[in-house]
Amino acid sequence: MALTLAAAIFLPLFPFSIVLNGMLMRLSNPYARFLLLLLWPQIGIVALSFTNQAIPGYMVIWALISSAHYALRLLTIRDLGLWAGFLASSSLALTWGLAAHHAPIEMHFFALWFSLPAALLTLLTGPLVKRFGAAYAGLYGGLASSMPRLSILLVVTVFAAIATPPSPGFFAMLNLLQRQSWPAAAAVSIIWLFWSWAATKLLQGFVFGADRRHGMPDLGRKSTLLYMSVLCAFVVTGIYITGGAL
């Protein structure tokens, strides 16, 4: 039971999610946040693999409530770093839906498909903070006009993070849904809908609208290519693995 509760810190369930979100708030270096988001859930899955007892049903319900709670709060979060953390808290909590079915490999991949885009989003906070002092939706807006490269990366990553096809998160969600009970599947669907809503609200605050800060330099060509390559590799690998696994 202790291991299960420990896993609730790493596959964040409210209020244990305070640890992950607190660390994300404390860390100012985007690369450190990136690594944290990537590795944190994997530790939780390893911890769960050491528990020999079945995951109790109430844990799945707890996970759904926790995920819905963060999905709801995501709607009015404007700080990009915090948004990425809350999205990770909401999506990674759903890993418990697979834990109840004893599917460790699928759990590792599920966590990766959701933590990687969220981690990539935290990387994007770096250039925004450097240029504007804060990565805050609605503060400047109009990035599509002034910083097209950064905007494209932000849009693609946000859509990958909310499990839009062909990102692997989409197939992982389908896999998760077909393993859930009918009410749980309905709840997961509504959580998914909230992510989409929150994503469009976030993008409207960053990408669209009139450009109010002229003359800010865009991302460099090499950084853009590198970032895009990671995203493409993520999608291709995901399609290969999840497509075959379904």
Binding site: S145, S189, L193, T200, G209
Partner: peptide, 26 residues
Amino acid sequence: LVRPAAQRYAFWSFFTYRVGDLPLIL
């Protein structure tokens, strides 16, 4: 990309479509 009305109604369409996606998935 600049006109707020275009973005607002694009969002309406997207959200309704997402509402419609979920029953098909289920």
